[in-house]
Simulated assay, not measured.
Amino acid sequence: MAYDLILQNIARHINLTPGEQDHFISLLKPEEVKKKALILREGQLCNNIYYVNSGILRAYHLDKDAKEATIMFALSDWWITDMFCFINCQPAMLFIEAVENSSIVGLQKKDLDQLLIEVPKFERFFRIIMQNAYIREQLRVIQNLSLSAEERYHSFLTKYPQVVKQVTQKQIASYLGITPEFLSSLKVNKTKN
């Protein structure tokens, strides 16, 4: 597996020496994941954060009626985990599934903790990643509270046009908190206008 993409991702925020790059790469666990395979299940200890080299992953939660609520998508060059459970070394609350055949790399929590001590500049990198994730989720909550379903759908189309092409209508609907049927009606209304 080539590590160019993940190193470019890191280089946007910090500069690594060749030795630091080699050390970081030595901690990564590459994995090829088939479509619909689960890399994390609810209740399983969440001890990895994943970087998507290619493909797309989806994190979702099942309610008591087994209804899915998509929490996030992760495309190529994105990071994903069940963050609360990863940070606190707890059983996962989420499932993480490959939406399509995907190439990912995992970084274990114990290796990340050691990396942050050995190469302190990674503190900056992961702080920026966490800040960006927090901002994204805060904006999503505000939109869910203040925008109509139609406005949320249009915002999703504008913000994530590449996701729309790679995931199912059911998955988009579960991300938006609406039914697939209602999403269909929104799409029909959009084409009429």
Rank of each mutant, 00 (worst) to 15 (best):
V163T: 15
N144G: 08
I71G: 03
N189W: 02
V119E: 01
L139G: 15
Q143K: 14
I128H: 10
R58M: 10
Q138A: 13
A92M: 06
N144L: 08
R124F: 05
F156W: 14
A69D: 14
S146A: 15
K192F: 13
Q108E: 12
D77W: 08
I25R: 03
Y60D: 05
R127E: 03
L7D: 08
H23Y: 14
V164N: 15
K121A: 12
V164G: 01
E42A: 00
S146E: 14
K35D: 10
I128S: 02
H154T: 07
I39Y: 07
Y175T: 05
F24D: 00
P161A: 07
N47I: 02
F126P: 02
A66T: 10
N15P: 11
L157Y: 14
Y160W: 14
Q131H: 10
K159V: 10
L176W: 03
S148R: 01
M130Q: 11
I71C: 00
I104M: 01
D113W: 07
E123C: 03
A2F: 10
L40K: 03
L16V: 01
I128E: 00
K67W: 02
N144E: 07
G43M: 03
N101F: 14
E20V: 06
Q143L: 12
F156A: 12
L16S: 00
L45C: 06
I10A: 00
E97K: 04
L186V: 03
I178S: 11
L115C: 05
S26W: 08
R127K: 10
H154V: 04
I87T: 08
H13K: 04
F182A: 12
V52N: 00
D113E: 15
A69V: 07
K109L: 12
I135W: 06
K35N: 11
Y160T: 07
I49W: 04
F84S: 15
L38T: 13
F86M: 10
A66F: 10
L94I: 09
N189K: 15
R136L: 11
K67R: 09
P180D: 04
K121D: 09
E151A: 14
V164I: 13
R136V: 05
R152T: 09
H61C: 04
M72H: 11
M83V: 13
W79V: 06
S103H: 02
K192H: 12
E151Y: 07
L62I: 02
C89K: 08
E151F: 00
D63T: 08
F95W: 11
F156M: 12
N47M: 01
F73R: 08
Y175H: 13
L147Y: 13
F24H: 00
F84T: 15
C85G: 09
F84G: 13
V105M: 06
T179P: 10
K187I: 01
T191V: 04
L28R: 05
M72A: 10
P180Q: 04
Q21Y: 02
I80R: 11
P161E: 06
E32N: 09
L186Y: 03
K35I: 09
R136P: 00
L176T: 05
N132L: 00
Q169H: 15
D65N: 08
Q108S: 13
T158A: 08
K165C: 03
E97T: 01
Q90R: 07
A66S: 14
G19K: 15
I39Q: 09
L139Y: 13
V167Q: 10
I104N: 02
N144P: 00
E20A: 11
N101S: 15
S76Y: 01
E68P: 02
S76V: 02
V105H: 01
D82G: 08
A98I: 08
A149V: 06
S54D: 15
